[in-house]
């Protein structure tokens, strides 16, 4: 992780991450006018631990508007996965509640599609049959479901692989099928739990571009969990930063980077400013911490035989 360090003179010249250009400010104003799709109301989750209850999440509130792209980041162990499972209805909160279009969430359902890090494609079904699954669950006839599924497969650019089985696909392709499968069930919100975490850097960049493209063209709200700070800035309208033990909201950042987003925005001042803020939040005083934790290694090479 290369972060703009304090000694970097360019870093000091960065604008405030809260300053938005008129276009970006107008976009956020318009966004706030849209109806709320998902309302998270003082959500909390405790687990029974060995030494009494452990609070994984505490008092999280957030309103997500229609067609908004929200990213959640936080250090490991901040309850990101618990959070998204609560939204999906795969776990039950111990306090607070989740409302989808004003109706409380009581269990998993097709109105909240989910894309998991581990792909979770059905290995015994072809790509088409995987994408058809949600449609068939809605009671669509096979021919109609297949026609719809093929459109979604087209959308993620996998027409050639419609009859392939998951084990014949690369990781990125599997995740595209998983996205198509989730979208085919026409969810109100798409929940994505570190979907690109297992992919190599190049594929991940491609998938981020694909996802933005899909989001632009499909009426869907996206809730995206990641531990990759650049990914969060590149994708999100707003970034929810959690802190660990217990998982609580640290800050809700409106990303000042203008849309449409492209990979070359990674070096714009707005991007770097946001990035520096996230670094401060996620890795506070990282330099001092690393310096204090030198490994107790003795020299095992000859003097002068240095590599750096």
């Amino acid at each position: 992780m290369v972060s703009p360090s304090d000694s970097d003179p360019a870093a000091d010249a960065l604008p405030d991450y809260r300053r938005q250009s008129p276009a970006v400010a107008a976009r956020f104003a318009a966004l706030r006018q849209r109806p709320v799709v998902l309302e998270i109301d003082r959500l909390g989750r405790q687990f029974a631990g060995e030494h009494g209850p452990v609070t994984a999440l505490r008092d999280i509130s957030l309103q997500i508007h229609r067609r908004e792209f929200v990213c959640v980041i936080g250090p490991s162990g901040c309850g990101k996965s618990t959070f998204i499972r609560l939204l999906a209805g795969l776990d039950t909160p111990t306090s607070g509640r989740v409302l989808l279009d004003g109706k409380p969430v009581t269990g998993p359902g097709p109105d909240r599609g989910m894309v998991f890090q581990g792909y979770t494609l059905f290995p015994w079904l072809s790509v088409t049959r995987n994408v058809m699954f949600g449609l068939e669950m809605q009671g669509k006839a096979a021919t109609e479901a297949e026609r719809d599924a093929l459109q979604w497969i087209d959308l993620v650019g996998l027409r050639k692989f419609a009859h392939a089985y998951p084990h014949q696909l690369s990781g990125g392709m599997k995740q595209r099928v998983a996205i198509a499968r989730a979208l085919a069930a026409s969810p109100r919100i798409l929940l994505m739990d570190e979907p690109f975490g297992a992919l190599d850097a190049q594929t991940r960049a491609q998938m981020q571009a694909h996802l933005l493209e899909i989001w632009r063209n499909v009426d869907v709200t996206i809730f995206f969990i990641t531990h990759d700070l650049d990914e969060a800035i590149l994708l999100a309208d707003r970034i929810l930063v959690l802190k660990a033990n217990p998982g609580e909201v640290q800050e809700l950042i409106e990303v000042p980077v203008p849309r449409p987003r492209r990979l070359d925005q990674l070096t714009t001042p707005e991007f770097l400013a946001t990035r520096r803020r996230l670094d401060e939040l996620i890795h506070p005083k990282v330099a001092a911490h690393v310096a204090s934790e030198r490994l107790p290694i003795v020299r095992l090479t000859q003097l002068g035989d240095d590599v750096e």
């Binding site: 359902g109 599609g113 699954f133 809605q138 989730a182």
Partner: peptide, 10 residues
């Protein structure tokens, strides 16, 4: 996780 995926698909 396959069961959970299926649940989120309805």
């Amino acid at each position: 996780s396959l069961v959970e995926a299926a649940q989120t698909l309805g």
